[in-house]
Computed example of a mutant assay.
Amino acid sequence: MKLQGKMFGGLAVFILAAAVVYGFWSKEAVGTTALILAFCMCTMIGFYLAFTARRADNGPQDRENADIADDAGEVGFFSPHSWQPLMLAAGGSLAFLGIIFGWWLLFFGLPVILMGVWGWVFEYYHGENRTQ
């Protein structure tokens, strides 16, 4: 995690330099604010990763003599055939189209988003743990 912390730190320095140059050159407040917020986010993530790297063991990415195969293994569980991301994408599309065409369309998108989130969260609750 040390490497990722350093990467986010370098990205934060670059974004800060871009924000300063952009702010002086364009005199535009919204873009400068967005870049400063991106700098803050990168700094926060970099600090978290660097702080956590002190407590955790060194991973293969932190060793110079590591091979790619050293980082192999199970990453996690991913649902192989879930339809819920499609429902979330459709609901999100409706909601963002509501920002463009009219806020009334947002009221059709929010229930679709909520159904997608509900379905995704409770997708694997079947059997004895299932509520009636």
Results as ranks from 00 to 15, higher is better:
55 R>H: 11
50 A>S: 10
61 Q>S: 11
72 A>N: 10
86 L>Y: 13
70 D>R: 03
46 G>N: 04
62 D>G: 02
59 G>Q: 02
53 A>V: 00
77 F>A: 08
74 E>M: 08
82 S>Q: 05
77 F>G: 03
36 I>Q: 01
67 D>T: 12
57 D>Y: 06
62 D>W: 01
24 F>E: 11
76 G>A: 08
85 P>G: 10
41 M>Q: 09
90 A>W: 01
63 R>A: 07
38 A>G: 11
59 G>I: 01
34 A>G: 15
86 L>H: 09
46 G>R: 01
21 V>I: 15
45 I>T: 12
32 T>M: 10
87 M>T: 12
85 P>Y: 11
77 F>T: 10
34 A>V: 11
22 Y>A: 00
73 G>T: 04
22 Y>L: 02
84 Q>S: 12
73 G>I: 08
89 A>C: 10
43 T>A: 15
55 R>C: 02
45 I>S: 04
40 C>H: 04
77 F>Y: 15
65 N>G: 11
68 I>W: 10
22 Y>W: 09
35 L>C: 03
45 I>R: 04
63 R>C: 03
26 S>C: 02
56 A>L: 06
46 G>P: 02
90 A>R: 00
51 F>V: 04
84 Q>K: 05
52 T>A: 02
89 A>L: 15
88 L>N: 05
79 S>Q: 06
78 F>N: 06
82 S>F: 04
56 A>D: 04
51 F>N: 07
56 A>H: 08
46 G>D: 01
72 A>W: 14
47 F>P: 00
27 K>V: 08
22 Y>C: 00
24 F>A: 10
22 Y>P: 00
31 G>E: 06
87 M>Y: 01
24 F>Y: 14
48 Y>D: 07
58 N>M: 06
76 G>W: 04
61 Q>W: 07
82 S>A: 09
27 K>L: 13
69 A>Y: 10
52 T>W: 00
53 A>Y: 00
64 E>R: 13
70 D>F: 05
34 A>P: 00
70 D>I: 03
47 F>Y: 15
34 A>N: 14
69 A>L: 14
58 N>P: 02
83 W>T: 07
47 F>M: 11
22 Y>G: 00
43 T>E: 08
86 L>W: 13
42 C>M: 12
30 V>T: 14
20 V>R: 04
63 R>M: 09
81 H>R: 13
85 P>W: 08
51 F>T: 06
27 K>C: 06
73 G>P: 04
25 W>H: 12
44 M>K: 09
25 W>R: 11
30 V>M: 15
35 L>A: 04
55 R>F: 05
42 C>D: 09
48 Y>L: 12
41 M>L: 15
54 R>L: 08
20 V>C: 07
66 A>L: 04
42 C>T: 12
56 A>E: 10
63 R>W: 05
62 D>T: 02
75 V>W: 01
83 W>G: 06
37 L>Q: 06
30 V>A: 14
25 W>Y: 14
84 Q>V: 06
32 T>L: 07
83 W>K: 11
86 L>M: 10
